[in-house]
Design a protein around this nucleic acid. Structure first.
Lengths: 84, 84
DNA sequence: TGTCAATATACGCGTTTGCGTATTAAGAGT
DNA sequence: ACTCTTAATACGCAAACGCGTATATTGACA
């Protein structure tokens, strides 16, 4: 899986949605794993800015993902190393 | 700057605190940049689990950081220190 | 076009945010 | 010990969360 960059709640939600679908899970199934409602997963993936950190971390955990914090790259869409 | 891994709100808060100090900013100064109170920055860095995504993303932006979502590595960096 | 699965949205509720304002506690240095 | 800066905590408030429950709405496909 490619490393996905998120600089906004919307981007983060989109990444989570893709990751969930890659694992062939429905929002309800993911919610089941982490004791959150399907509706809550929906809002998270939509990128609702007031979503709680707890919700994000739970989803990441269930999807076997982790966060990396790093300095912003010059080019947002991709890595320079990938180009050259 | 090395890439820091966060699997919990607490770890995320600790990373943000280090990044802020590296840039010689006080909580109040960081708050000023993103129109959040010093108290709000304090809670974020403490790893309050119900902190809003908006708050996280704003802080990352002001610190010129970005998030990367990736599959979990086998051994987390925190565990590495315990082993060696 | 109709059906079914999946996702988005709604209501009332208890909880917690971030707010303004302010105070308290902790750290660093002389 | 004292001072100055910085960080943590407190109060009351409006807003939004995630909850249970339930209902739209969407999308895919026979």
């Amino acid at each position: 899986m490619k490393q996905e960059i998120a600089r906004s709640e919307k981007q983060l939600g989109a990444i989570l949605r893709r990751a969930r679908k890659d694992k062939d899970l429905t929002q309800a199934e993911l919610g089941e794993k982490i004791s959150l409602r399907q509706a809550t997963v929906s809002k998270l993936e939509d990128g609702a800015p007031a979503t709680q950190l707890r919700t994000l971390m739970a989803a990441l955990s269930a999807l076997d993902l982790e966060l990396v914090v790093r300095p912003r790259s010059k080019i947002s869409s991709s890595n320079l190393e990938d180009i050259f």
